[in-house]
Write a protein that binds this DNA or RNA. Sequence first.
DNA 1: GACTAACGTTAGTGAAACTAACGACGTCGG
DNA 2: CCGACGTCGTTAGTTTCACTAACGTTAGTC
Lengths: 161, 161
Amino acid sequence: MTRAEPADVPGDGAPKTTPDRLRRRASRLLSQLSTRSDRLINEGLAQADARKWHYAVLASLQDHGPGSQATLSRRTGIYRSDMVGVLNELAERHLVERAPDPDDQRRNIITISPQGRRRLRRLDKILDDLHDELLAPLSPAERDQFVQLLTRLLDYHTRTS
Amino acid sequence: MTRAEPADVPGDGAPKTTPDRLRRRASRLLSQLSTRSDRLINEGLAQADARKWHYAVLASLQDHGPGSQATLSRRTGIYRSDMVGVLNELAERHLVERAPDPDDQRRNIITISPQGRRRLRRLDKILDDLHDELLAPLSPAERDQFVQLLTRLLDYHTRTS
DNA sequence: GACTAACGTTAGTGAAACTAACGACGTCGG
DNA sequence: CCGACGTCGTTAGTTTCACTAACGTTAGTC
């Protein structure tokens, strides 16, 4: 009540005060961009008979070494319920190997195979190209900044969850 | 380009030599952050018996004036198939009014009601708070930059689709 | 007056993120 | 040693989201 009705826009003063709140809301920008990004990536990877989960798991294995399914789950953010299927697909293609852990019979130890490594290199290149398209309008410096901002936000929200 | 093969990293040391390509991929950062953002926003809005679609439609009506369902669909990015349900929910709550367009009998003209306006103000406040939490780790300047980068990316990808 | 296109609507698809519950196994406290 | 409890892999199911297909209806166009 202290404030006047913003009214229906007829060009009165202070046009900048309420410009398109929709376009400004970070949450909305995020989810829309994420949708498009996902589609871009999925389509790109589909042409190589891969999904983004495949990449996530292979990269995790390469970077952090072998691990149990639960470990991979935590590293990649894929739910362990869904990890089963992903690993099945990867194992079918002989990109990973699933072997029982001798020290703990509950676990499987997942290792990346030589083919898996080759595959990962291939996917890395594909993803490089796709990200080039994804980030096309940004300069190299801006891309770094963007990634850095995203990282900080994500870190914050994973710590506090 | 130093193309150092990261190799398998035996031992459990998890050294920093291979700075996690996963964490660097913008697509991954985007989709993970978007997931958390969505959850944050949805939970926040749910406590006010609202969904983000409600906000999108109400804000669009307030900022751009009344319109047909198809128009709203284009403005908000909601598919016209899904728009039906959203408008039903909004109409149930008397936040919008759906009236046949006298000039074109195919269309409905959707208008925001006074209650809808009040609602929108309320949701705007809620969203302000939620975004404060979402962007917590960023300084005001960084937040602007973040939004600006997102906007440019999204614009680019909507133009080229 | 026939064609085409846009409208609102209904139904359904596929993927993603998550929950619940299971039997099998390990670990720890008493 | 034993029971309580947590973890592991797995199966099944839920919900939500973005999207497609098809429909009858209505408008504009030739």
